[in-house]
């Protein structure tokens, strides 16, 4: 489903964020990408979503070379991914409901069905009662969960989450980890970047450990 072939990513002037990365992720796998700060975890996820392009090597998603996609192709790719960003990227001028609605609006869902899905996603992350709240009125952990709801609302086949438990206490982090596990159990490929893996330690079958951009 996801395949890295000798992928390097360098940033100017001369930072090697990722060096010669090769691995496969199959459908339904749950993978934890670990490593110290600056190890290249975010860069790895961004390569899959074509937010960054490899300097050399190839990133394949469903057999498609992501690095070679044009604008329209990138849009299609991203509509089929669920993304949780490290900085969340919530829209602060619209409420929780409308934030989660955005991917469905982009995908062109009819409003009625979309509304149902948004409520289901908010319910899943425990924010059903806060759908009218603006993001500023939510705590850091609630914002984090809102970002997760937005990532899963379109029921993507691949879920990429960058530090999804960074702002959460252990109990809530455990709940969030369960959400990802539920998706993984229905066949979604889940990649989670996290330097703190205690929340996932119970059930993660696979780890990719990065050290200075290299796979351990």
């Amino acid at each position: 489903m996801i395949r890295f072939e000798h992928v390097c990513r360098r940033y100017p002037p001369n930072i090697a964020a990722l060096t010669d990365l090769s691995f496969n992720v199959e459908a339904g796998e749950l993978v934890l990408v670990c490593g110290h700060s600056g190890a290249g975890k975010s860069t790895l996820l961004k390569l899959i979503a074509a937010i960054e392009r490899p300097s050399s090597g190839a990133v394949l998603v469903n057999g498609q070379n992501v690095g070679a996609l044009k604008r329209a192709g990138i849009a299609v790719l991203r509509r089929n991914l669920g993304l949780v960003f490290q900085d969340q990227k919530l829209l602060f001028d619209r409420n929780a409901f409308d934030n989660v609605m955005l991917p469905l609006a982009i995908a062109g869902y009819p409003p009625k069905e979309a509304g149902k899905r948004v409520r289901a996603a908010l319910d899943k992350v425990g924010l059903a009662a806060r759908e009218k709240a603006l993001p500023v009125a939510l705590s850091g952990g609630e914002q984090q969960r809102l970002a997760i709801a937005r990532a899963v609302v379109g029921r993507p086949a691949i879920l990429l989450a960058d530090e999804p438990t960074a702002h959460l206490d252990q109990a809530t982090a455990g709940d969030v980890a369960k959400i990802f596990r539920d998706f993984h159990q229905v066949g979604v490929a889940v990649l989670i970047a996290s330097c703190d893996d205690t929340a996932f330690s119970n059930f993660v079958p696979r780890r990719l450990v990065l050290d200075h951009g290299k796979l351990q």
């Binding site: 849009a75 602060f92 955005l102």
Partner: peptide
Amino acid sequence: LSEIEVSRLLGATD
């Protein structure tokens, strides 16, 4: 701008 950026990241077309 932020709305446009986020929409792009979520797969919005031009």
